[in-house]
Amino acid sequence: MTPNQLMFAIFSAVIIVFSILTVTSRRILRAATFLLFVLVATGGMYFLLRFNFLAAIQLTLYAGGIVVLIIFSILLTSHIAEKLEKPDLKKIIPAFLVAAGGALITIATILQHKFPVEIASGSERTNIRVIAKSLISTEKFGYALPFEVISILLLAAMVGAIILAKKRKD
């Protein structure tokens, strides 16, 4: 067993265990915290694959941004003594079936793919300079246009959020 395999095993175990805990926990902030672990472990997985940039973005956006936002909103809305109600069997079974079906499809799709044994040396692919250059490149496979479109979308979303928040006040 190589260290990489060991780390992979640890990360996968963390992801699986905390994913299950996230959906089964009946305290909402605990669920959010477990979600944080899942996302951090996913970030670790990216580090393992040497997708350093993606890993850092995963940590910043998901772990540092979205989970903080979720926790923050829970802080504002819920009380410590509150627990979610236990879902009844009628709802667990269909939910479980849907989840299992989704998992089956995903696993089946993944298994169809033949994984090369060697890890691609891939310094070219994950190099931060290449990512940066293609992000602002206007040529083929350049992301300048999507980048700008997204920023306009985000700006619109921000303006919308401000207007919504302002309306509620008066």
């Binding site: 802080l75 504002l76 809305t77 819920s78 009380h79 509150e82 979610l84 109600e85 879902p87 009844d88 709802k91």
Partner: peptide, 12 residues
């Protein structure tokens, strides 16, 4: 309702 999302809002 299955999920009884708390509606208490500390802001208000």
């Amino acid at each position: 309702e299955v999920i009884n999302l708390p509606v208490k809002n500390v802001e208000e």
